[in-house]
Design a protein around this nucleic acid. Structure first.
Lengths: 211, 211
DNA sequence: ACCTGAACACCGTTCAAGT
DNA sequence: ACCTGAACACCGTTCAAGT
């Protein structure tokens, strides 16, 4: 397998003295700056150390290798995100399901869009490849195909096909990708896929009667 | 920005002779084998050339740099996926919207799960970092929080909270992530988010009456 | 037109030596 | 406990020389 779970990604040393904490913060800050400015390809240990104002050797006292640096950054990001979601969930205790769903969507979207450059830099740090053109080409082809399909539907005419099309594509592809990456049992995956279909149908039924 | 759109990711040379095509196929095959077996971190130009049975110099006649190799692989994959979706769309011409949605979900899921190792290797080639443990931790925290929230709902009792919870989380997070990465105008993003909410509500309404 | 492989610049990582 | 930076192995990329 491609995983290398035997190699620790954890920081090597936990700072005990004040200057060590300063050093670690400087390294983190330097990393995020370089990531936002130049992307992961220009992120070298030499450059991080240089900008953080420490020697390479120092960096390696805190992080066993370069990967663990970016890993730690993502860890911080995800932890903060989970914090926010937990707060939202607690705040919605006893509310209606609709209100819950709404605030869950809002919280997640806001967390992603608040500091867009940082979110994107982190996404790109994980998705190293600059394959946006590929994705765009793919999206365009799929959009055309599904739109034409929807317009031909025998049981429904849409007053805004583009909106419905975009919604269905984003929901279905996003959900399936997410589901795939979760690596659930076939039974659980199958269930979510069935529920997804039910959800799409319920949505279509709703906008049908609304028009 | 992190993008490097001024650097071409396209193949450098298009094969004109038969042996050149053989060479390119060998390089592609070697790349995919190494990717599946060892992951992107062990993918070096030397190793690819070695396994393909050509010299490094030859590789660089077809690909301007290492990145373009993996890029070309992803390009092939996405093109094949788009092909399949187009076929599905054509086949569903004039069908009911429900049937369309269903075959779209099925096609996409099947394409991803048919040769799981290859799909995963490609995903990992783009998502270089081995951050599965991070994702798992995050998912567990979120799962607990949202499940507790749903169980506290004032307007609804679920006979299978876990299923509903997993569905909502997968759909919402997958959709939002996908939406974020599409980089649409705020108006279009806002619309999809509103539609997503409508969809979740329609779903909840459906399973409420079904129970 | 296509292939080779030594050569070069640079990067990740270590470690003996310091405070 | 924490920091330094020269040293080493290895990788990406090039290019003069070949068929």
């Amino acid at each position: 397998m491609a995983t290398s779970s035997h190699i620790s990604l954890k920081p090597r040393r936990t700072p005990r003295q004040a200057r060590a904490t300063v050093t670690m913060d400087a390294i983190f800050e330097a990393t995020i700056q370089l990531l936002v400015a130049d992307g992961i390809h220009r992120l070298t240990t030499t450059r991080v150390a240089e900008r953080a104002g420490v020697s390479v050797g120092t960096m390696y006292q805190y992080f066993p290798h370069k990967e663990s640096l970016v890993y730690a950054l993502n860890e911080r990001y995800l932890a903060a995100l989970a914090d926010r979601i937990e707060v939202t969930c607690r705040n919605q205790n006893g509310a209606t399901v609709s209100a819950m769903t709404e605030s869950l969507i809002r919280t997640y979207w806001e967390a992603k869009t608040e500091r867009i450059e940082v979110t994107k830099a982190l996404y790109r740090s994980v998705a190293e490849l600059d394959n946006q053109p590929l994705i765009d080409t793919f999206a365009n082809r799929v959009n055309s195909a599904t739109k034409a399909m929807l317009e031909s539907a025998s049981d429904m005419k849409f007053h805004d096909v583009s909106s419905v099309n975009q919604t269905l594509i984003t929901v279905i592809f996003g959900t399936v990708r997410n589901l795939f990456e979760q690596d659930l049992t076939p039974a659980r995956s199958g269930n979510v896929l069935r529920q997804l279909l039910i959800m799409c149908n319920a949505y279509l039924e709703t906008i049908r009667t609304a028009e």
